[in-house]
Nucleic acid binder design. Structure first.
Lengths: 197, 197
DNA sequence: ACGTTTGTAGGACAACGTTCTACACCAGGA
DNA sequence: TCCTGGTGTAGAACGTTGTCCTACAAACGT
């Protein structure tokens, strides 16, 4: 224990990163079902025992992968340069969907049924909260500039997140029963802007 | 094959129902991770091989459980007696959340990452479509009576489903970052009515 | 009443997560 | 310089999972 010391006592911290890299590759290639300890260790070129030395167990490894996923989601939803508050919110929503469609396995693992029981780690909750805060900031930006009706930014952000996550989740699950998923998503974003103005 | 014949050749179709009953009990008791073929067979009092005789493999069994779940969801969202179209839509949304909170394991399994790959069965798609149609009917009811802006009922229903599912999904995952999840859900329903009027 | 077909029971196999045991390596004292 | 202590690794091993194979019991058609 006392691993957080400044000594840097771990001579091969790089193995940790290599394992997470390998886990991401395996996840993308073989899906969540193919994400086994042996497969990840083989992909990283280490023994399966390395996973338990570095992350405790398999859940620790997938928690690390999920943490990266939340970071990527936060980065994707933050990469907007528009000054217009409405355009910024729209870009945020579109980037959210783009990230999910570009990394479906990550997204499914992040918000799948594993979150409620397999990984209630405090670190993961912090990452999710950071991604959520990025949205809260954009909502507050919109409220300050009159694009959104004034109110509790966190409550409004939670409302937007619910709708956007639901649309993306259903689309990834093949449950968009309308002809054009992209058009339905755009209609959802427009309805959100209408209902919150 | 040719199982659909009228002969009723299966002398113990009851075993099929007993297996699904047992699977539901195990799912509620031990969660999705505890839903193993052996546990379900033991709970039903039959040999594990019975699962493969009746359902082909484990996925077939869980597909049967999920089909029941979709039926229950359709029944829950349809049990409204209000004549007022707005009240009927609100009841539909509240019943949706009530079902999900009452059967969290079912809901998680129905919409989790298993749907995209583990169970793209035509039967399941039909059940999901039936539950969706119940919502489409209520949307059309609201449009005909002026509670909702006229338009494509399926598109509007998809939009509502996205938002409602997202809110429920985040709540089950413990990702409602506002103090009162019920209040946030009510705000979401109200925003939907506002944005679609 | 017999032969065929159907479903069951139990054991067996590969793969999984996890743990145990023995070995190689790197730092410090004589 | 050698020796000692501790850290991480490699490989085998255990229990459990999904799935399949083989032998046996029961039910239907003639």
């Amino acid at each position: 224990m006392t691993e957080g010391s400044a000594g840097g006592r771990t001579p091969s911290r790089a193995v940790e990163q290599a394992l997470v890299d390998a886990a991401e590759r395996v996840l993308v290639r073989d899906g969540l079902g193919g994400l086994t300890v042996r497969a990840v260790a083989a992909e990283a070129g280490v023994a399966p025992m390395g996973v338990y030395n570095r992350f405790g167990n398999k859940d620790g490894l997938v928690a690390a992968v999920l943490a990266r996923g939340f970071d990527g989601l936060a980065a994707a939803t933050s990469e907007d340069t528009d000054v217009d508050p409405t355009a910024r919110l729209l870009a945020c929503g579109r980037n959210y969907r783009r990230f999910a469609l570009a990394h479906p396995q990550h997204y499914g693992a992040m918000f799948g049924p594993g979150l409620s029981q397999a990984a209630p780690t405090a670190e993961l909750a912090d990452r999710a909260d950071a991604a959520f805060t990025a949205l809260v900031d954009r909502v507050r930006y919109g409220m300050d500039r009159g694009a959104l009706r004034p109110g509790d930014p966190r409550g409004t952000a939670q409302l937007i997140w619910s709708s956007v996550h639901g649309a993306v989740s259903l689309e990834l699950g093949g449950l968009v029963l309308t002809p054009d998923a992209a058009a339905s998503y755009e209609a959802l974003l427009q309805m959100l802007l209408d209902g919150l103005r």
